[in-house]
C-alpha cells in the first residue's frame, strides 16, 4: 500500500515537472521585453531583465570575466555565505554526533601497490588543480566550491590508499574557522569602508588579470579553504567512527 502510494506521488511529481518544463519551453523567448524589472526600494523600473543585466554589466560593475563567479560572489554573495554556512553546519553536526564514537584501530587492510604509488603522484596535482580552480575563479570556470571539493577528493584518495593517513582534527577546524571569519569580515568591512555588506570596496584593477576584481578572489580563496577542510573533516569523521 505504502509502496503504491509512493510510486503514485513520484509519478505525479514528475508529470507536473514535465508539464511545467513543457510550458516553459513553449513560452520561452529570451530577449522579450516583458522581463523588465522593478526596483523594490524606490519602485523605479528598468527595461531589462536581471539576466540581461548580468551579461551586459558584469565586467564594469565587478571586474570579473567569469559571469558565474561574479553572480556567485558579488551579486548574490550573501547566498554564498549562507551556502558555506550550510556546509559548515553539516560538518559541525557530523563531528558533534560522531565525536564520542572514536577509536583508532590499527588493523586496517593496506591498499595495493598501484593505488599507493599512484596516489602519491596524483595528490600534488589534485591539490594544485584545486588551488588553481579557486584562485582563478574570476577568470576561468570554477571557483571556491569546485576547488575545495577537488582538494578534498585529493585527501580522500590518500585516505583510501593509506588507511593510517590521518589529518589533525584541530588544525582542520582552525583552518575552517579562519576561512569563515575571513569571509564574514570581508563582508563587514564593506559596511565600514563602503555602504553595504559585502560591497566591493577594493580597486577593480585591470579586467582579465589575476589581481583584479577586488574582493572576489579573496572571498573565493577563503571559500576554497573552507570547503576543502570541511569536506575533508566530514570524510575523516565518517572513516574513523566505530560502531
Amino acid at each position: 500500500m505504502r509502496k503504491q502510494a509512493s510510486v503514485v506521488i513520484t509519478v505525479i511529481f514528475f508529470l507536473s515537472l514535465t508539464f511545467a518544463f513543457y510550458q516553459i519551453s513553449s513560452s520561452y523567448n529570451y530577449m522579450e521585453n516583458k522581463y523588465d524589472y522593478t526596483n523594490p526600494i524606490n519602485e523605479s523600473s528598468a527595461n531589462e531583465s536581471v539576466p540581461q543585466h548580468y551579461i551586459k554589466d558584469t565586467k564594469n560593475e565587478t571586474g570579473a570575466i567569469n559571469v558565474v563567479t561574479a553572480i556567485v560572489v558579488e551579486y548574490r554573495g550573501f547566498d554564498t555565505l549562507g551556502e558555506v554556512t550550510v556546509l559548515f553546519t553539516a560538518a559541525t553536526g557530523v563531528g558533534f554526533l560522531l565525536y564520542n564514537l572514536y577509536s583508532r584501530k590499527k588493523n586496517k587492510r593496506e591498499a595495493n601497490l598501484i593505488l599507493r604509488e599512484g596516489s602519491k603522484i596524483v595528490l600534488p596535482f589534485a591539490l594544485l588543480t584545486g588551488a588553481y580552480i579557486f584562485i582563478h575563479g574570476h577568470l576561468t570556470p570554477g571557483g571556491g566550491f569546485p576547488g575545495g571539493s577537488v582538494i578534498a577528493s585529493g585527501f580522500l584518495l590518500m585516505m583510501l590508499s593509506y588507511p593510517k593517513f590521518f589529518m589533525n582534527e584541530k588544525r582542520l577546524s582552525v583552518l575552517e574557522s579562519l576561512a569563515g571569519i575571513t569571509f564574514v569580515l570581508i563582508g563587514l568591512f564593506g559596511l565600514i569602508f563602503a555602504t553595504y555588506f559585502l560591497q566591493n570596496y577594493l580597486n577593480l584593477g585591470n579586467v582579465g588579470y589575476l589581481i583584479s576584481a577586488g574582493i572576489i578572489p579573496l572571498i573565493y580563496i577563503a571559500v576554497g579553504f573552507k570547503v576543502g577542510s570541511e569536506l575533508a573533516s566530514v570524510i575523516q569523521n565518517l572513516k574513523e567512527v566505530q560502531e
Partner: peptide, 18 residues
Amino acid sequence: PDVAITEASIGAGLTMAV
C-alpha cells in the same frame, strides 16, 4: 563547466565515499 566540475568531484567522488 562550473557546475560540471563540482558535480564530478562531489557527486561522483565524495558522496560515494561517504
